[in-house]
């Protein structure tokens, strides 16, 4: 396996590792950095479970080669909040009952985070568009949209 040095910022920390050239960003985050909050769902860019922010924009980390993130900035769910100090979006997800099995939740939270950075006061329709790349089989999305609305109100205060 051809190895190459990869240097990037993950959740605000500069990381430098010698890693194979053929791994995905998803593999690098989960298997090398053990940031297992990022989930693999379909592995072909359809479900959004592996969503991370690359230079602030949500991407499917299963479709990004690790080395194409060289020199760039990645934020995963671990960089949004911690169990002791939840991000307002995470608090809103709990409050609204927007989590059932939880598998889509990290991706949903990151998609919502990226939306609210750009548009702090989205309409319900804008929220639905923003999370439409993230599939959820449990909730019917209603309470996830409620949660993002609630988070927008919380952050607006």
């Amino acid at each position: 396996m051809e190895m190459k040095k990869l240097s990037l910022t993950v959740n605000g920390k500069l990381i430098e590792r010698e890693v194979p050239t053929n791994i995905r960003l998803l593999d690098f985050l989960r298997d090398y950095l053990h940031l297992t909050g990022t989930k693999e769902g379909c592995g072909e860019g359809e479900c959004g479970a592996c969503t991370v922010l690359l230079d602030g924009k949500p991407v499917n980390s299963c479709l990004v080669m690790a080395h194409s993130a060289h020199g760039r900035e990645v934020i995963t769910i671990e960089g949004i909040g911690t169990p002791d100090k939840l991000h307002p979006i995470q608090e809103a997800f709990l409050e609204a009952g927007a989590v059932q099995c939880g598998y889509c939740t990290p991706g949903m939270v990151l998609a919502a985070y990226a939306l609210l950075k750009e548009n702090p006061n989205p309409t319900r329709e804008e929220i639905k568009v923003a999370i439409s790349g993230n599939l959820c089989r449990c909730t019917g999305y209603n309470k996830i949209v409620d949660a993002v609305e609630l988070a927008a109100r919380k952050e607006g205060k």
């Binding site: 009952g97 089989r137 449990c138 019917g140």
Partner: peptide, 14 residues
């Protein structure tokens, strides 16, 4: 109540 609502909304989506 919230969990029941979530089950109903999720079922409807399916």
């Amino acid at each position: 109540k919230i969990a029941v609502e979530g089950q109903i909304q999720g079922g409807v989506a399916q």
